[in-house]
Write a protein that binds this DNA or RNA. Structure first.
Length: 589
RNA sequence: GCACCCGUAGCUCAGUUGGAUAGAGUGACGGCCUCCGAAGCCGUAGGUCACAGGUUCGAAUCCUGUCGGGUGCACCA
């Protein structure tokens, strides 16, 4: 029998799949199957219909064609080799599925595994320690974060946690766009506030940042420079004020992130790439691969920009890597485009030894992903995969009414506004209740509502019920420590309604692994909702069937078994919420 | 015009990387509290998975085309 790691034991589905693969290997050895088959598509999954048993495998069907055999023949030979250990019985069904029934106690063992593992239950090693870089937020350092940044921030942080939980070595990274014209605008805006602090009338011209958040920056500048910069030409103060203001803005942003419980491992500066030869070196690397040339791009088809004119530019041959056209890396005046330092930046990430890169962009930057993918492919010789996740817009509502925002009118909503009104836990969970590429509605009234319409509340309510029942059992004299509960007689948990909940708990390792593979943390949120639903369902059955209540007056042993189940649900909820960055509730009052 | 994302119940959305009879919430209707937390649970109703082809044992899922919505399209970042 193949060696099974502790991790695989925790993921029952992987364990059973390993047994199926072993049986297939044995069939090959015995000549029942041809050599050289690929078992990668063999899956073991919970069947949708419970009547189909505990688990089902498609092995016979996916192997029929490559093996040149009938599914039914494979299925029957495979079935004969599977009834062993945890698998109690096997039947061939439908077009060639093998429906597996597990031996008594196997599911219950998963409850024990959850209690033994605690919040490590479901942790996996499939990431194999791979170094993954998750770059997210990367908001321009020109002001506080607003709602537009909020969702990407939560998504990136949760994805990073999810990958860490599944065995990756994760770095959270922020790319500071401090190299372009917008930080000069910031400097000029801050300068006006500096003049204001010196008692002069600020002249916030069109195009400057009007926000109040620069007023304290102006005062800090006064404290530092007095009036020595007043009426001096821009050349004398631009760089100093720019660097100062940028640093202040980054402090602001770090504070905003902290409100959400987000802490970056690294802030990488775009500006720091200039003048170090890093950009030139990155471009040179592409040039030596024959991917840089001087050329003139075709005008875009369809509506032609008014001021379009043919220009010779330095181009990157991104079209060789799936991009639609080649992309300019230098402007006509010879300065780098935004793309050039970004190429250098990604090369730097590759250079730092990451095995996998993930970028999180707003959906409005979708047009950028092909060229970035092309660059990373070219720079790493295809070694390092880049996955760009696009985050769709958040639509704000208040009691069903759309919340109009306008930067000009000063009514744009900051991240701080949202978190202070809704709370970090609610905000974070709600941001993850949609797939990243689907638009999301955020209604300040609804997210705070206490009903099952609100998934945050619903999951928290389940958590609170678990804690409630643990408290009651403790009052009756049950030792509710995990170590003690793990010793309870779990074979008492044999009612179909209880088994249904146990199955949900047992699915956690599998769900979290799938979520990690897909880079989709929202799956964790949906699973938790589902798990909460199963708990509520069992709970309410206890109203009619008193034998199903978690607390059984006068029978401490049975209570301990049932509390063990409740606690395993609680363990998974806090583990799952932990990945999402949400604190589980102990009570709702 | 081109590229990317999306199209699933009246509404808002999931859908286990191709599996068996497509699921939740909400809204509508009907049940369940002398009972561990009813802020909950159970049931009924509701579908041509935008449309048309194709791939195969098998498609909401993969490919092609069409329609509809969003986003982006040289010297902005």
């Amino acid at each position: 029998m193949r060696h099974i790691s502790r991790n695989d034991v925790m993921n029952l589905f992987n364990d059973i799949r390993a047994r199926v693969i072993d049986a297939l290997d044995a069939m090959v050895a015995a000549g029942d199957l041809p050599q050289g088959l690929d078992f990668a598509n063999v899956t073991v999954e919970p069947p949708r219909d419970p009547a189909h048993g505990d688990m089902a495998t498609n092995a016979a069907m996916v192997l029929a064609k490559p093996a040149g055999m009938k599914p039914r023949d494979i299925a029957e030979k495979l079935a004969a080799r599977l009834t062993d250990g945890p698998i109690a019985s096997v039947e061939v069904a439908g077009p060639g599925f093998l429906n597996l029934r597990l031996a008594p106690g196997i599911w219950q063992d998963q409850v024990r595994a959850a209690l033994d593992g605690g919040e490590d239950f479901g942790r996996s090693t499939y990431g194999a320690g791979q170094k993954v870089n998750v770059e997210f937020v990367s908001a321009n350092p020109t002001g506080p974060m607003h709602v537009g940044h909020l969702r990407g921030a939560v998504f990136g942080d949760a994805l990073a946690s999810l990958l860490g939980f599944s065995g990756h070595d994760v770095t959270r990274e922020y790319y500071v766009n401090d190299g372009g014209a917008q930080v000069d605008v910031l400097a000029r805006s801050a300068y006006e506030r500096y003049r204001e602090a010196n008692g002069l009338e600020p002249q916030i011209a069109e195009g400057l940042y009007p926000g109040d958040y620069l007023i304290p920056v102006g005062e800090a500048l006064k404290a530092r420079y007095g009036d020595s910069l007043i009426d001096k030409p821009e050349e004398e103060w631009l760089v100093e004020i720019r660097d100062f203001a940028t640093a202040q803005m980054m402090d602001l942003i770090r504070g905003d992130l902290a409100l959400l419980g987000i802490s970056m491992d690294i802030f990488s500066s775009e500006r720091a790439l200039y003048g170090t030869g890093r950009i030139e070196a990155a471009i040179e690397r592409l040039r030596s691969a024959g991917l840089i040339y001087r050329g003139t791009l075709e005008p875009p088809k369809g509506k032609l920009p008014e001021d379009w004119e043919a220009r010779e530019q330095t181009l990157f041959k991104s079209s060789e890597f799936g991009d639609d056209v080649d992309r300019p890396i230098q402007k006509s005046d010879g300065a780098w485009t935004y793309f050039a330092p970004d190429i250098a930046y990604h090369w730097d990430k590759i250079d730092r030894g990451f095995d996998q890169l993930i970028d999180i962009f707003g959906a409005d930057h979708g047009g950028y992903v092909k060229r970035m993918n092309a660059a990373v492919k070219a720079l790493s010789n295809g070694r390092v995969p880049l996955d760009v996740k696009l985050i769709q817009l958040v639509k704000l509502f208040k009691n069903g009414e759309p919340f109009k925002m306008s930067k000009r009118a000063g009514t744009f909503v900051t991240l701080r506004d949202v978190v202070e009104q809704a709370g970090a836990d609610v905000t974070r969970f709600h941001m993850l209740t949609r797939k990243n590429d689907a638009p999301l509605d955020f209604d300040f009234a609804k997210v705070l509502e206490q009903s099952k319409d609100n998934p945050v509340w619903y999951v928290q309510y389940a958590s609170a019920r678990v804690h409630s029942v643990l408290r009651r059992a403790a009052e009756l004299g049950v030792d509710v420590s995990d170590a003690a509960l793990a010793k309870a007689d779990l074979s008492k948990l044999d009612h179909p309604a209880e088994l249904e909940l146990i199955r949900k708990v047992a699915e956690w390792p599998r769900q979290v692994e799938h979520a990690a593979r897909a880079h989709e943390p929202h799956r964790v949120a949906f699973y938790l909702y589902d798990l909460a639903s199963s708990l509520h369902s069992l709970w309410n059955r206890g109203n009619d069937e008193t034998g199903l209540r978690f607390v059984q007056d006068g029978d401490l042993d049975t209570t301990a078994s049932k509390i063990a189940l409740a606690r395993s649900v609680g363990v998974v909820i806090s583990s799952g919420l932990g990945i999402l960055g949400v604190t589980p509730a102990e009570e709702m009052r």
